[in-house]
Design a protein around this nucleic acid. Structure first.
Lengths: 202, 202
DNA sequence: CAAAGATGTGAATGTGGATTCACACCTTGG
DNA sequence: CCAAGGTGTGAATCCACATTCACATCTTTG
């Protein structure tokens, strides 16, 4: 046994893997998953196509991991906002507002994470992360219901509805970006919609 | 000029076209768009693959048309429910309830129309039909706002949110089919969510 | 019926990527 | 330095389909 991976090698490997994920995310953020092609990613990361297959068993797994990294970041952010101290209703308002703003800023990424057609492996991961979003919101709803800040309701269903409403409102065909000219900022309407739906006093 | 399409021929052609769309919809309803392959559809409809290209310029167009037929049916149904006489709030409740029930019954079709990854041509059509859904709902909202049955709000945004909430709640990862065991029917919660969101009195 | 034109056929071809793999090049421990 | 194993390379291969096309067949009109 003349060879055994040493720390240095392990680090180098980890570095390449990280570069792949980083460049992958970058690619997805600018062009969506459609832009995440093996050959292209390899070039961007400065390796040969074959190398990628030393780090991921196939493209689906690669995509799923790129997706997971990006999504986890969003879920964490939302949880962070929701765990701030203060009244439940205000926290929910802040969370929905944050979501709208992030989605509007990083439109392509948001679309990629939420609605862009993707390979089945990613679709599976997408369900997981949508559920994670909903779970984080549901936790806060339950808290509000317990303290009486919100009326009794099925927290899971309400949370899912909120996720859906946000996704459709911000990314769907109906509502565009805030329209400076008309002064109408959909964010305000969206936040109001969600709070009313949850039974927050107006 | 020894030949000119006669009525009988035109009818036959139309029949084949119709069969293709019908079988296409059937395929999509049972397996989603993934199941809609040219060779398979040809077999089902009893024609050769080449024949399909006499009716549609390419697969994208075929899919888009299958999609349009199926979607139009749903939009029409929703409009029909919303145009019934009666209080706006009740009509909205009926419409959301109908949607939930239809989606639960025809799960695969609903998923195909709303969220399944699809070819770009269909994606485009999808946006159009989502907008159509929203437009139908928005009309009713405006009516309710005018008559004072609903509080003032941005009808377009609210409608989009409702569409999103319905889609996510019924098809998303969180809420399953009605769970006979626990007796919890998500439909009721979903309808309540939407009505509350729109500001309908509880 | 014959000629002209449509339409139908399905095996062969094309296509856009992912995936492989024979080989070259490193890294390590002796 | 050597042998044993890792790791990197990228052109060649594979694949699942859509798409084409040379030919056969059917329809219509004179």
């Amino acid at each position: 046994m003349a060879y055994r991976k040493t720390e240095r090698v392990r680090e180098h490997l980890a570095g390449v893997r990280e570069a792949l994920l980083r460049e992958g995310r970058q690619l997805v953020a600018t062009e969506g998953f459609a832009g995440l092609q093996v050959a292209r990613l390899a070039e961007r990361a400065g390796v040969a196509t074959g190398t990628i297959y030393g780090h991921f068993p196939n493209k689906g797994a690669l995509c799923a991991e790129v997706f997971a990294v990006a999504s986890q970041r969003e879920v964490d952010l939302m949880r962070q906002v929701l765990e701030q101290p203060g009244p439940v209703v205000e926290r929910l308002a802040a969370a929905t507002r944050t979501w709208c703003e992030r989605a509007q800023r990083g439109r392509v990424l948001a679309r990629a994470l939420l609605t862009e057609p993707v390979d089945p492996a990613v679709e599976e991961a997408r369900l997981v992360y949508r559920a994670a979003y909903a779970a984080v919101i549901a936790d806060t709803l339950r808290e509000g219901i317990t303290t009486g800040e919100l009326p009794a309701q099925d927290a899971e269903v309400s949370a899912a509805c909120v996720v859906g409403a946000l996704a459709e409102a911000v990314l769907g065909p109906v509502v565009g970006v805030p329209d400076g000219a008309s002064g109408r900022d959909p964010t305000v309407s969206i936040v109001r919609f969600c709070l009313a739906a949850l039974g927050a006093p107006p």
